[in-house]
Design a binder for these strands. Sequence first.
DNA 1: CTCACCCCCTGGTTGC
DNA 2: TGCAACCAGGGGGTGA
Length: 279
Amino acid sequence: MPELPEVESIVRGIKNKIEGRTIVSAEMIKGRDDVIKYPSSSEYAEEIKGRMIEKMRRRGKYILLELSGGVLSVIHLRMTGRLIFVPGGRADDKYACVIYRLDDGSCLMYADVRRLGTLHLLCGGDLSMVKGLSSLGPEPLSEDFSADYLARIAKGSRSRIKSFLLDQKHIAGLGNIYVDEALAISRIHPLRLAGSLSLSEIEALHEAVNKVIAAGIEDGGTTFRDYRNGTGGKGAHQEHLYVYSRKGKACRFCGAAIEKITVGGRGTYFCPKCQVMKD
DNA sequence: CTCACCCCCTGGTTGC
DNA sequence: TGCAACCAGGGGGTGA
């Protein structure tokens, strides 16, 4: 489940290899090209052909390829999407959906077991086609994401803090794993209402979000099952998790058994001793 | 505004 | 062993 650190790791690993390269063609794999949401896959292939990749960057969980002529390629991996750079150009993944052939013989492959990922090609800077991208909140580790900002948006909110943090309009890039981790580090129960947090709790949470995102990037992401970086490798942050996927195991802070509950339909892990419910 | 719920989709795991 | 139910969860959409 690629979240900010995973997507960042992909971009860092591929960026230097594809910037400046021209896309010779986009090969659509039959029956798997329905990951392309706009325009049609044939128009997509026609429109992207011959364009140079001027810049690759990340915004939230989105991968953005700025192409020549003001065209923007937007890729969201959702659950099982992978973007892999293949130097020799022999992309033979069973789950390949789209293969971008580059002018030096290499290729960039989009593969996705469940095909929940989404690919868009936007001309003329119309971001409204990708609703989530145009309404993204500030990036963790950025100046815009301050404790003050967090306090301001949380104030008056009746959402549970877990759901609140997962909302990309509030903060860009957090997903199920890093939200649980940030709440564990700041010792906040996932069911707390966002508007009920004290200033010191907000400050602790702000710091925890930055800390866990930085650690995730440092470790090259978290690989449970599906995640792979831009060259097919695994991340290492799964070795350093405090609560996520650790049901029944000992809390690294106090030794109590980690519990699992459902919050907003998501599996949620927390330490019942460190993260006490109030309100 | 916030919620529950459904959908998208497949593979791994669990239960009988 | 086989097969069905369930789970993983990001994000869009809908109706309460």
